[in-house]
């Protein structure tokens, strides 16, 4: 399990990284390496060039601008979990990241790496779907912004040209008194989820005014449960209401694989949507 030979590149700026991408065929970006390195070791991926982003400046860290959180693509998961802005504005992110791998892998894993790898069951894409995040990518011609809904093109394939680099993720955070719940079911702590659910709620006078429900793992990329989100608006924030959403979740289009069936994924989606909404509802600041 040793990688096949490659040429290693160590750019220091995003521009350099992009021009290396543009000038080298069969190149792979190395961010945190927690998904790429296993694939290199197993020779599932055999690139001619590896472009390391770990010394690129200016593409990490979290800033708050006009109710937008802007997160550099190379921000590591451990730093997202410890970041005060993230903790106060989008507390669902640290909660969800507790489920991602283990603290040793979170010390390396980056948000950009996770979004580009785009594992269907990964937590960060599921969260970014819930937030309708915008992804900024840089290419030889400059930058473009991609709404998350247009980010997954197919199974584990992001909307990213071979010479483009994801540099930034931004999303509008919810009101201070929103409720949030993240629930996932994995066989063991730190495993990829079979199904994961992120739920955000805003409630006014006991009634739901805004809802986002994102489901990861059920299908080839995270999906928003739009029908349920719409159904919740105006309804009382209670378990009976959440059951309506859970029933819709149980009908979600799902995939089967060697381990579990689509029916089981649907069943989990129902259970987890219910539980995530209960959690979110309990956390709404009703004052």
């Amino acid at each position: 399990m040793k990688p096949a030979p490659f040429i290693y590149h160590n750019p220091l700026t995003p521009e350099d990284a992009v021009s290396l991408l543009a000038s080298n065929e069969e190149a792979k970006i190395l961010a945190g390496g927690q998904s790429l390195m296993p694939m290199l070791n197993m020779r599932f991926v055999v690139p001619d060039h590896v472009i390391d982003l770990n010394n690129v400046t200016g593409i990490d860290g979290v800033t708050n601008r006009d109710n937008l959180l802007e997160i550099g693509a190379m921000t590591r998961q451990c730093d997202l979990m410890a970041n005060d802005l993230v903790k106060s504005k989008a507390p669902i992110i640290p909660e969800a990241l507790e489920h991602v791998g283990h603290f040793q892998t979170r010390n390396r894993c980056t948000i950009g790496g996770s979004l580009c790898h785009l594992d269907p069951a990964a937590e960060l894409p599921c969260l970014m779907a819930a937030y309708d995040a915008n992804l900024t990518v840089q290419g030889p011609e400059g930058q473009r912004e991609i709404p998350f809904i247009e980010w997954p093109l197919a199974y584990m394939i992001p909307n990213l040209a071979p010479d483009e680099l994801l540099t930034k993720i931004s999303f509008r955070y919810w009101s201070l008194n929103h409720g949030f719940g993240f629930e996932e079911f994995a066989r063991r702590h730190g495993d990829f989820a079979i199904v994961a659910v992120a739920a955000l709620l805003e409630v006014d006078d006991g009634k739901i005014t805004r809802a986002a429900i994102s489901i990861g793992g059920a299908n080839i990329s995270p999906v928003r449960l739009v029908k349920a989100e719409e159904a919740l608006i105006g309804m009382l924030a209670n378990e009976d209401t959440y059951k309506v959403a859970a029933d819709i979740a149980q009908e979600i289009e799902s995939i089967s694989d060697a381990y579990v069936t689509s029916q089981y994924r649907q069943r989990l989606a129902g259970t987890l949507v219910q539980r995530a909404l209960v959690k979110a509802g309990d956390r709404v600041n009703r004052s």
Binding site: N10, G33, Q34, N41, D52, N54, Q104
Partner: peptide, 13 residues
């Protein structure tokens, strides 16, 4: 100072 997997990092890094 941080625990990491040495199989998932290149020596050059």
């Amino acid at each position: 100072g941080e625990a990491v997997r040495s199989c998932l990092m290149l020596a050059v890094q």
